[in-house]
Amino acid sequence: MISPKKYAKAAKIPPKGFKTSNDFFNYVFKDKEMIWMGQNTNHLHQDNKINDAMIDCVESREYCKYPPPEGFPELKDLVLNDLGLQDDFEILITAGGTESLYLCINNILEPENNMITCDPGYLIIDNFASRFADQVISVPIYHKECNYKLTPQLVKENMDENTKLISLIDPLNPLGSSYTKDEIKEFAKIAQENDIYLLHDITYRDFSREHHLVAKYAPEHTITIYSFSKIFGMAGLRIGGIIATPDVLNSVRSILINDLGTNVISQAGAIAALKSKQEWIDDIKNQTRKNQDIIKKAVDQVEGAFLPVYPSDGNMIAIDLKETGIDPQVMADYLIDKKIFIRQGAYTSKLFGDRYIRISFSVPEYQVKIFAEKFIEACDRLRPL
């Protein structure tokens, strides 16, 4: 019998009516009428150069060949140019931001170290860290006092001599909170003064009103995680990257598993996406902000419900239901029956999952209006008497 690892995840509890989580996601994926507001994916791209580039790649059968193992040079240059990090940085193209996170956490943490994360947050990071560190310090941030984010002060209060890595999701999934330039500079100072690393996950960067890269202030102490899943609408294509200084990336190279490169078709789409970005990004950002306002108006009609962070700088937002008496899981189950896929809070929080649901809103406007109507209806029906 194989002994369970110390970091083994508990089996996911599937929604009612499904034997496994995989069965549930297969059901949601296959239902063409399902409104997809549960995974922060972007459904606002129309036919454009991204689609055309991938179709051309398929028709030319370029996928028969292995690509360069660290990504096509053209794509690597485009990503660095997109971030303005050309001079002192390198990039590895990976199979999505999640692979990037795993590689960096594995590479940096030693058994005696601890890593600072936040709750709510992206719990996969906590799981990865638990595999390689002595301790994961998950700082509670679901409070108005800290503006629902991991602040430099909270980091100082929770770090010690064994702290090696700080996770900074910016904007933060699931709340949409983000950082000012002064806060980013303060994080950079903490990393430099204590010789530790910041893992700056910028997956939702392009939805934000204002964004600042820690790498520009602490280049030797920052690893930046890049993803094509959200603003580029390529979640199912699994492509992302790690940006860092050469010495850090040389260390990451020593633990690579996928040394035969990332999906050729995905890279073709990613190149086209970056080249065409200025043609479509404003339309997508404007629509997501309009959609967010529709959600806000619906929430304002429900007594006891509120948005902890508004406006969100991501393409997702949390709706706090605690004072309504409605269980977030019950709300999610109700809406899935109405063909609206959302997430209950427990998906992104161990401490506050009973308080909120998370809604992503980079979907067509008419779908957001359907959600708004059904959310108000659900609150009327599910509220305890």
Rank of each mutant, 00 (worst) to 15 (best):
K277S: 02
Y204V: 07
L213G: 11
I271P: 05
Q192D: 01
T245E: 12
E279R: 03
A188G: 10
T288Y: 09
R238V: 05
K285N: 12
N286F: 12
I202Y: 00
I190N: 00
A272Y: 08
A218V: 10
V248P: 07
T203M: 14
F228I: 01
Y197P: 13
S227Q: 10
I243D: 06
G240F: 07
I223V: 15
H200P: 13
I255K: 08
D195S: 13
D195W: 10
T262H: 04
I271M: 09
A244D: 08
A191Y: 04
I255Y: 07
A270Q: 01
K285W: 06
H212E: 12
A235G: 06
M234Q: 09
G233P: 03
N250K: 15
A273D: 03
L274Y: 02
M234A: 00
W280R: 03
L237M: 08
V248I: 15
A268K: 15
K275L: 10
G236F: 05
A272G: 02
G241F: 15
P246V: 14
M234D: 04
S229G: 06
L199A: 13
N194Y: 07
R209P: 07
L274N: 03
D247F: 15
I265E: 10
V264Y: 12
F232V: 01
L256V: 09
L213F: 12
A188E: 00
F187W: 03
D259G: 06
V214Q: 05
L199D: 07
I196L: 13
I196S: 05
L260A: 03
I265N: 00
N263Q: 06
N250L: 10
Y204W: 00
N258L: 11
H200R: 09
R205H: 12
H212M: 06
A272P: 09
L260R: 11
A268E: 06
S276D: 11
M234N: 04
T222S: 08
S227D: 11
